[in-house]
Amino acid sequence: MERETGSQDGPRVGVFATCLVDLMRPAVGFATVRLLERAGCRVSVPAAQTCCGQPAYNSGDNESATAIACQVINMFMSFDYVVVPSGSCAGTLKKHYPEMFANDPIWEPRAEDLSKKTYELTEFLVDVVKFKNVSANWCNSVTYHDSCSGLRELGIKNQPRALLENVSGLIISEGAEAEACCGFGGLFCVKYGDISNEIVGRKVADIQETDADMVLGGDLGCLMNIAGKLKRQGSSVEVRHVAEILADMHDHAAIADPDSVEDV
């Protein structure tokens, strides 16, 4: 039996943690679970999950991408909802799986079914379960980076802001270019590193214009890119996934910051 937490009579939610959260920043996974529990859900994190297949899909390797997609569909088919702490991976499940299986009599309906119940975390909290009870504190100003897939594939813009407004003490200072791409782009950031680096340079300049102490966002890929650039420039601006602040789980080091102050 897989581990299950939260309220037993709530909707059954499967968390698709995403490979980056799984590998790079477990804190986001824990924060996601905590938020879903608080929102009254019955939460599972299927142990066999790996990756949504987006790197393969975006590189033209449709054979691998569809094989991975079948695996994800099978794993999450039985849940009421699938919640993903990433706009771009949620977008893959929601928008691209149905595309991948277009005209496949068996898999297209399954992909459509999964698509209908898949949500990005903040989208799920605000639009589906109408979660209002954010009990978190953060007495500082933050700015928000709207990551491309979340914004343009899923229309996520107001949901994270609506949640953050309920964090006591928190002030949102919007960047003029909050919606601009950070230049991550999956494998693009390595393949065309020079260009990617210039794009993220403009992104962090916009962030610094806001005078915020922290950048939040819903996609770890973008956040790692932004944090990597800020830290290379010696900036003290912290970078975190929005779930960490919403779940009030932010005592550990921010992205790309040293593990703990005493260790430095």
Partner: peptide
């Protein structure tokens, strides 16, 4: 890493 640092992972995986 030509122009950016790469964040270190936080130990064991989430799963």
């Amino acid at each position: 890493t030509g122009g950016r640092d790469f964040p270190a992972p936080n130990g064991d995986t989430f799963i």
